[in-house]
Nucleic acid binder design. Structure first.
Lengths: 114, 114
DNA sequence: CTAATACGTTAGCTGCGACTAACGCATTAA
DNA sequence: TTAATGCGTTAGTCGCAGCTAACGTATTAG
């Protein structure tokens, strides 16, 4: 599996990325937040590393994983590239239909946002 | 597979969503844009329908698939929910590193997706 | 030193996702 | 009417993604 978006989309890996956004962490620490084994988490991390979304630093007998910023930027670009202008228009319509909450930020094509 | 992001992330289904963003289309028409069979495309569409991203309208002996706007809005929200503030900060740093254009409004020639 | 403990990875299994082939059903042609 | 063509879906196969169990390795206790 080489596809960036597909790799990042898997629920456990998504969660891993979010946890790592808080800061670097070991496999065991991360695994504590999941119902599955360390092994499973380790393999998810290896896959994330393979596509350049994370990297590891060895210290003692621990390996500290952390987000690879350039990779995450590529992920962001991939999603933005997927989310074409047509989709923006469609979703804007949908939001107008079923929301009494006046959209505060979301549909605004902010520079750093989206 | 019930996960919205995961369903949408698969490359063929991603492409289907993009094609449908241009307007409704039949299974056969859509399949023409892929190297795989009508059957495969039909099954991808059925899955997309199951999670509410598309819907179908029958006319003659054709079924016209089109995007479900509310579902696409949910997809957007799911991604925004995943992309936490921490990630925004990290990616902002990464963008600052390898580009003098900090805000990707112009079509960046980087993305190899799709 | 040896043994024990804890870390992360590799070996092996299983279920399910993605695909082609076979099918049912309409529509159109004869 | 019947036959033929084209539409989309269902039946069945295969490979691989995701998991647990077993392992290698390295630190720490004795």
């Amino acid at each position: 599996m080489l596809d960036l978006l597909e790799v990042a989309a898997e629920p456990n890996r998504r969660r891993l990325l979010q946890l790592l956004a808080r800061g670097e962490s070991t496999v065991t620490e991360l695994a504590g937040a999941f119902p599955v084994s360390r092994s499973a988490i380790s393999q998810h991390l290896l896959l994330l590393a393979e596509v350049g979304l994370v990297s590891a630093r060895k210290s003692g007998r621990n390996r500290y994983y952390s987000l690879e910023e350039a990779g995450m930027a590529r992920l962001r670009q991939a999603f933005d590239s997927f989310w074409t202008h047509e989709l923006d228009l469609l979703v804007a319509d949908a939001a107008a239909l079923n929301s009494r909450t006046p959209h505060p930020d979301p549909p605004t094509p902010q520079a750093g946002e989206l």
